[in-house]
Write a protein that binds this DNA or RNA. Structure first.
Length: 614
RNA sequence: GCCUCUAUAGCUUAACGGAUAAAGCAACGGUCUUCUAAACCGUCGAUCUAGGUUCGAUUCCUAGUAGAGGCACCA
């Protein structure tokens, strides 16, 4: 978008090297990494090394690289839009003509508005699967990491130009679910707490209690043992009835399952997540059995049930691998019931066939890495070409300072509790810090800020790293946090409000000009803060692309902080409204608008709200 | 036993194989009659060890150390 000069210069360098028989390596451009400097750079080390390898020269590589940079510089002459060029330490540094470049960047942002940074439309459909909590349990802070990562990834991929489908896959069956139903039926039948979250969390408490009742304890009395065995038999019987389609058990399942799903939908709403597709484990249970039959028929799976075993796939053997990689896994238990892996095969088939996806991203805990690799390998054996386009985005799990979370034991930190606490903490400081915020708005803005802090804390760690959850860190409002970025947005907004510049100026459609204000002219000596800010704004489009290509929300999170940081510094050092020269004041107002718009776009991609005041 | 991931400042984290390793927190010192100080400016402080590849390694490879995780009827 901002690389016309780069292309011109690249052409000239290639011409020069061809004419002088220099084996030019691929030209890699980067921003000049010194603050306040403004332009782009490339180095000639690789080219010099190529030359040396070809037996020419004989000079040390750095020296030869510098020589080349100087020669190229001599050949370039003057290039429109470029103020000056220097050759230093083997690098060629090319500096922009500030006024023109600044104007181009700012105008681009203002004319594109909410679309600034959007990638060109790609002809590819991507499905992102995330938010796969179990029903009858609780949505804890680990699920929150998953959901936030998935949602932000979906937003990035979508904004980068891909058609994107968001999919949730709640686990609504299995022994854990039956366990909750058993204790409900036995001890709590007919009870139902008021409130969506209360009811959902109550099921999680029942699960803990049930687990404890069913667990073998040390030094059990014979009576206790007998009691436990009775309970266990009841639970097994309920599982059997569920499997057989017993109407009463199925109804109990439907009702309690809905309690959980209602809470999940409520949580997703809090996080502004709108799912396109809901898959349930129970939907793919039966279809997956059909698949196993086919795999057995095609000799991909081996049926060892006649010998009292299970249905298995010797994945390495079938793929012809000699080294152990995917190992062997079970598709059906010896009793014929399905497993997680089995259901994932049916789910993938559904994604490929019903939704015609070209690429499928699974946002799943890194501990399930082998399982997913096994699933993808079996899909390949089965003959799905899209199996190559299945990608597991693993992320490190969230634990507590006292150890791993456990739904079974009730050792969890619930997302809802943290979110509530976040709002409380913001409200506690709001009266002293936010004189501007109308009382009626406080709750809403406190929610935006509190969740902003929480969400950002989840995004600011690379996804392959584990997180030890510390509520004080997650809900910090100072420094590299969500509220810091929100505050930059608020400050920009505040300047614009006071300047009486109307918002519509920001939403001009392409090609329109707002007469008196634009085009902005930056033909004065820019401060280094302005240069830095414009530089960062101009990098937004490529940051979107990088974050989407690498599946790394962190890249966008880091960028958003850098951008906000540049704005805060600018805000502090450069006065906008009190600038005497009307033209400069105008240009700076344009820059503030562009910064506000870019921060807004970045926050939106990060699933963080942008409050007007705070 | 096999496999995967991680190791950077006191703590939490960044850094397409390139120039001076970047932030936040904590500590210390400054900045509010100013477009709101949830901010700004400054000081202190780091690449686990040993080899290798490369003109150049925090980054790639090998080995080691330390931590986390996974490995056939849980999800």
């Amino acid at each position: 978008m901002f690389n016309i000069e780069q292309q011109i210069i690249e052409g000239k360098i290639k011409g020069f090297c061809a004419a002088n028989d220099i084996p030019l390596a691929e030209l890699k451009w980067q921003p000049i990494p010194f603050s306040g400097e403004w332009g782009f750079a490339t180095s000639f080390f690789q080219t010099a090394a190529n030359e040396a390898r070809a037996g020419k020269g004989g000079k040390p590589v750095p020296q030869r690289a510098q020589e080349m940079a100087e020669q190229v510089k001599g050949q370039l002459g003057s290039v429109p839009g470029i103020s000056h060029i220097e050759a230093v330490k083997g690098y060629l540094n090319i500096y922009f003509e500030t006024s023109e470049y600044a104007q181009r960047v700012v105008d681009e942002v203002l004319s594109s508005g909410a679309d600034f940074g959007r990638g060109t439309k790609k002809n590819e459909r991507v499905m992102v699967e995330y938010a796969q909590p179990n029903t009858h349990h609780s949505f804890h802070i680990g699920h929150a990491r998953n959901t936030i990562l998935g949602e932000v990834l979906a937003r990035l991929v979508e904004f980068a130009g891909f058609e994107t489908i968001r999919a949730s896959y709640p686990g609504d069956l299995g022994l854990g679910v039956i366990t909750v139903m058993w204790i409900y039926e036995k001890f709590y039948k007919g009870q139902e707490p008021v409130g969506v979250h209360e009811r959902g969390q109550w099921l999680a408490k029942l699960y803990v209690e049930a687990t404890s009742l069913l667990e073998k304890k040390e030094n059990e009395t014979p009576e206790q043992t007998a009691q436990r065995e009775v309970y266990e038999a009841e639970r097994r019987e309920m599982y059997r009835k569920w499997d057989a389609g017993d109407e009463h058990v199925r109804e109990l399942w439907r009702v309690t399952r809905e309690w959980s799903l209602e809470e999940l939908r409520e949580v997703l709403k809090m996080l502004d997540v709108k799912m396109d597709v809901w898959f349930y484990e129970s939907d793919v249970d039966e279809p997956s059995k059909v698949i196993v039959d086919e795999l057995i028929a095609r000799d991909i799976a081996t049926d060892e049930r006649p010998q009292g075993g299970a249905v298995i796939v010797k994945i390495d053997e079938k793929l012809g691998l000699t080294k152990e990689k995917y190992r062997t896994n079970v598709l059906l238990r010896s009793d014929g019931t399905t497993l997680y892996l089995t259901k994932d095969l049916a789910l993938a088939k559904m994604k490929f066939e019903q939704y015609q996806v070209d690429r499928s991203i699974y946002v799943v805990d890194v501990r399930q890495s082998l399982h997913l690799q096994q699933a993808f390998a079996i899909l390949k054996l089965w003959g799905f070409p899209q199996a190559e386009k299945c990608h597991h985005l693993g992320y490190g799990f969230v634990s507590l300072p006292e150890g791993a979370m456990s739904s079974r034991r009730g050792h969890v930190v619930l997302f809802k509790d943290v979110a509530d606490e976040a709002v409380r903490r913001v409200l506690a400081v709001e009266s002293e810090k936010s004189g501007d915020v109308p009382v009626s708005e406080r709750e809403k803005i406190a929610t935006q800020i509190g969740l902003g802090a929480l969400v950002y804390s989840m995004l600011s760690v690379d996804n392959n790293k584990d997180i030890v959850f510390d509520i004080n860190e997650a809900l910090s409002f100072d420094g590299r946090t969500g509220p810091y970025i929100q505050n930059a947005y608020v400050r920009a907004n505040s300047i614009l409000k006071k300047s009486k510049v109307e918002e519509p100026a920001l939403s001009l459609s392409k090609g329109q000009k707002s007469g008196d204000l634009r085009p902005s002219t930056f033909d004065y000596e820019l401060t280094k803060h302005e240069i830095e800010l414009i530089e960062l704004i101009s990098r937004f489009p490529q940051t979107v692309e990088q974050a989407a290509n690498e599946y790394r929300p962190l890249v966008m999170a880091a960028y958003a902080y850098d951008l906000a940081n540049a704005f805060h510094s600018f805000y502090h050092a450069v006065n906008v409204l009190q600038t005497d020269d009307a033209k400069i004041r105008n240009a700076r107002l344009q820059l503030v608008m562009a910064a506000k718009q870019t921060i807004e776009n970045a926050l939106r991609l990060l699933d963080i709200q942008a409050p007007e005041v705070m």
